Computed example of a mutant assay.
Amino acid sequence: MRFTPEFMLSATNEAHFPVEAKTYNAPEIAFLGRSNVGKSSLINALLGSKQAHTSSTPGRTRAINFFALHEGSGDKKKIRPSMIFADLPGYGYAKISRSISAEWPSFIEPYLAERETLALAVCLVDTNIPPQPNDSQLIEFFKAMLKPYLVVGTKSDRISGNVLAKSLAALKKAHGVSEILPVSTKTEAGTKELWSRLQSVME
């Protein structure tokens, strides 16, 4: 199935959250992870376009950026979005100003805890570094809230074979999960399987 992506809006408070998700009963997929884990790059790889802004400087995303996915293209594009992606601000980067970090809970926590249209949270972890405590805290949050989530290991092209297997095993143990889907936006490894998992949410 082919989709046409469209940037919707950037939200910095609950009043900005798009109403289209509820109006059209379109499931939302949230992408979360540490700053510079590759959220925007993964979203762009899935959409097949550079909709999400990427930066070499961690912590540049300050808002929740929403992208609508419409079935078809051109004149055949359906107005009703089939799915909505939400690119959330990264966390865990010490150089982000405290004022910005302090603002995050005011709109991020309500979004994650109360957003009725949030169908799946994609929790991104870096396969190239040891397990991070704040990644575990995020995953535990979804476990406690009984919210559906999927843990995805980014940048898997940088390591391979036994090294990747050991990294995934360590991440699974540290985060208390049975599955981590490794992906690479550079080689596109794992992106088709991830896309299939995301499409299953629509069904």
Rank of each mutant, 00 (worst) to 15 (best):
A113Y: 02
P133D: 08
E103Q: 13
W104I: 15
P133Q: 11
S41T: 15
T57Y: 01
A26C: 14
I79M: 09
K50N: 13
F31W: 09
N134F: 07
R115V: 06
N128K: 12
I96Q: 02
A26M: 07
G72E: 11
S56Q: 13
D75W: 08
T57K: 15
H53Y: 09
S97R: 04
K78G: 12
S82C: 10
R60P: 02
H53R: 15
F85Y: 13
T117G: 00
P133Y: 02
L69H: 06
A26Y: 05
R98T: 13
T54K: 07
I84E: 00
S49Y: 06
S40M: 08
W104F: 14
G38M: 09
N36A: 14
L32I: 15
V122M: 05
I79L: 14
D75M: 13
A52D: 01
S40D: 11
K39C: 09
W104R: 07
D87S: 07
I29C: 09
T127H: 02
V37L: 11
A119K: 10
K50P: 06
I100E: 13
L69R: 10
E114T: 10
V37F: 04
E114V: 02
A119E: 01
A113E: 14
T61Q: 03
L118D: 06
R34I: 10
I43H: 01
K50T: 08
T54H: 06
N65Q: 11
I29S: 04
P27H: 13
L112W: 01
C123V: 15
T61S: 09
A68P: 07
F85I: 13
K76H: 15
S35E: 05
S41G: 13
F67C: 12
A102N: 09
G90Y: 00
R60S: 12
A94Y: 01
R62S: 15
G74E: 12
S55N: 04
G59I: 01
K76M: 11
Y93C: 03
A26H: 02
S99W: 00
R62I: 06
P110K: 10
N128A: 05
L69Y: 04
S73I: 12
Q132I: 13
